[in-house]
Design a protein around this nucleic acid. Structure first.
Lengths: 230, 230
DNA sequence: CTCATGTCGATACACTGTATCGATGCCTTA
DNA sequence: TAAGGCATCGATACAGTGTATCGACATGAG
């Protein structure tokens, strides 16, 4: 019996921590969407049994919360924004880009309060960028309104994206793609405005679309923050 | 052997249809949230085996789509709106109220394209209310922007609601409620703007909150539809 | 009356999140 | 150093999920 024959001692498994668990979960979600994230698969990626995870998280929902907060680290601005408008605009675009990198985020955005350290830091930077420009309630309203638009617009964009991907067709073939159903509906003549929009609407790229709406909302916020004197 | 002894013929089960299936699913979701909706439970409500449903729907996702479209019937305006602003405002508020009646809708809103007849009809009324007030692209942008705000704001409101419900406490006790975590965070002094907002912010009811943000967005739309001459 | 055909739904499968609790290793004490 | 008690950890088990499969059945034709 030499050392070579002696079996390895039962490999002390790598100790886990939340960070590694969340990273594994995010990797899975990036690859296969949220529904590809199961505690068993996350654990498997870390050479552990499923129950191992329950020492670090107490529920799958909590894991999702941690994932969302982790991505918020990517949403934190790298440098101090110039003014409030740039702060809000930057936040919206960073959120959008993060969601394009992690599409599953669209399924979670706005679904639960996110109170992790990164999410709080993000809120902090937005609020502080507006601090002093109006009373507290107006400032909060401004942040909430822009965030609501951002959440809604991003979800919509991702929904479109998935739909296109599923049919494998561009928006031009959209009607045909969605089977006879929509075409038939439009053909009934019951939806003239919709039909007109479908036929005459220009095809704008998603980023421009997002941006345009965002600027509208920012314009609105501007008038509330600095109402015209008089 | 009398007629009384003769066993009942195997009860021809009530024939199903999509409508009854969707109604059962909505009832379940209203009672216990989306995750209470399982094909087995839906089927059980209709005295059927699970596989019975697959004659009418081909996937659980499809059932969700049908549920969403069904609720859109409640969102259709009852009477022709006075002007574009009332049309958009009405739609937003009806969507909000429908979501308060069917909280699970918040989980689905904006998550997938909804192309059912009711959803199409809703889009039609919104687009037609704006028809002619600007070029097609601006009109579509207006509808999309208001819808995005609506989706995002509603999701946020429901998330808050659930959070409050889970802790059983009002927003006043919010910090304490969310355990030491948030309080500790705020106490670190790393989030002064957030702390200020928490302490000085007035407690406004959800509807007012929703309304205020909505009017801001509508103001923005107004300036794009009817730009000042010059 | 027999047989072919097509439909329908019971059974089965692979997988989920998580409660339970016996085995295991560790630390303390004699 | 040896033994004992304790806490921790994770394998097993459970109740449930969505849905593929395919045998049994009812139905229609010959």
């Amino acid at each position: 019996m030499t050392v070579w024959d002696r079996p390895e001692p039962p490999t002390r498994p790598t100790p886990l921590d939340r960070e590694r668990i969340v990273a594994a979960a995010i990797a899975l979600a990036d690859e296969g969407g949220l529904e590809a994230v199961s505690l068993r698969k996350v654990a498997a990626r870390l050479d552990a049994g499923p129950m191992r995870l329950y020492g670090y998280i107490s529920t799958k929902e909590e894991l999702f919360d941690l994932m969302v907060d982790e991505v918020h680290a990517e949403i934190l601005p790298e440098e101090r924004p110039g003014d409030w408008r740039e702060a809000l605009r930057g936040h919206a675009h960073r959120t959008r880009r993060a969601t394009l990198r992690h599409e599953w985020l669209a399924d979670l955005l706005g679904g639960r309060l996110t109170l992790g350290p990164n999410a709080l830091a993000v809120s902090e930077t937005m609020l502080s960028a507006l601090d002093g420009l109006a009373d507290v309630d107006t400032v909060m309203r401004a942040v909430a309104t822009v965030s609501a638009y951002t959440t809604g617009a991003i979800r919509r964009e991702i929904a479109d994206l998935r739909s296109e991907r599923a049919t494998g067709l561009s928006k031009l073939d959209w009607q045909r793609a969605h089977g006879p159903h929509v075409s038939r509906m439009l053909a009934t003549g019951r939806f003239p405005a919709l039909a007109k929009a479908m036929h005459e609407g220009a095809e704008v790229d998603a980023e421009t679309s997002f941006s345009t709406g965002l600027e509208w909302v920012l314009d609105a916020v501007a008038t509330k923050l600095a109402p015209l004197p008089g």
